[in-house]
């Protein structure tokens, strides 16, 4: 479990593609627990930043280090905006990510399916689930690996409101206390509901990093103020 002792340090992190810099030299020190919301307009670089944290992208320069903890790449789980569902049953989708299926994991799987409202559909073909159910399944599949860091890339962007509510409730009540969550969104209200701290990204630069309370009450930059007021999408 990521704890308060664990600090995630990001040093001079940058990422380029074909000569275009998508993330400029970023230096941050993030809390090892709670929910960090990556906020910013479309194309700001939130997903790039998240994928660098996940290890799906390799930075062109800089580094990400975990101090006070011994986090390896295996202790991170990533959920993308478009749910990636294997063409098999709901239950088999979850069990697929496990190296070994123990009785403890089987019990946890049942619990997770129940929490996600999928317990009656465990033997159903996962491809036939609704968008929200698929995303809930992806979240359950991420949790079953017991990650220390959970990285969620706009997981509620294309799903129905009741699934959004269920996912948010689950993250706040069950996940936040036991692991670190990075949550990408451009929904201001969702960020208000979920965030402990905010990293605001604008055109590939982290221009603001503060507690959620500070960010929403007293944004320091003009871009953040415009974003909060809905003038930038």
């Amino acid at each position: 479990m990521a704890s308060e002792d664990t600090q995630i340090r990001i040093n001079d992190l940058s990422f380029d593609i074909e000569g275009k810099t998508l993330l400029h030299n970023t230096n941050l020190s993030l809390n090892g627990d709670g929910i960090t919301v990556l906020l910013g307009a479309n194309g700001a670089g939130k997903t790039i930043f998240l994928k660098l944290l996940t290890g799906l992208l390799t930075p062109c320069s800089g580094s990400i280090t975990f101090e006070g903890g011994n986090l390896s790449i295996k202790t991170r789980a990533f959920v993308s905006q478009e749910p990636v569902i294997l063409r098999r049953t709901v239950l088999k989708n979850i069990l697929f990510v496990l190296e070994k299926i123990t009785s403890e994991k089987s019990t946890l799987t049942k619990e997770l399916l129940s929490l996600m409202g999928l317990d009656k559909k465990e033997h159903q073909n996962a491809m036939t689930l609704s968008a929200g159910e698929k995303q809930r399944l992806c979240l359950a599949r991420a949790i079953i690996t017991d990650p220390e860091i959970l990285l969620l890339d706009e997981p509620t962007a294309n799903i129905e409101p009741n699934s959004t509510t269920l996912i948010e409730k689950y993250l706040i009540q069950k996940v936040r206390s036991s692991r670190k969550i990075f949550f990408v969104t451009h929904d201001i209200n969702q960020a208000r509901r979920l965030a402990d701290e905010i990293v605001f990204i604008h055109t590939g630069r982290v221009i603001e990093h503060s507690s959620a309370e500070n960010f929403f009450e007293n944004p320091k930059t003009r871009e953040a103020r415009k974003y909060i007021s809905g003038k930038i999408n």
Binding site: R87, R88, T89, K92, H123, Q124, N125, M127, T128
Partner: peptide, 9 residues
């Protein structure tokens, strides 16, 4: 396949 987009195994 088109009807079910895959089936259970």
């Amino acid at each position: 396949y088109l009807n079910t987009s895959g089936s259970t195994i």
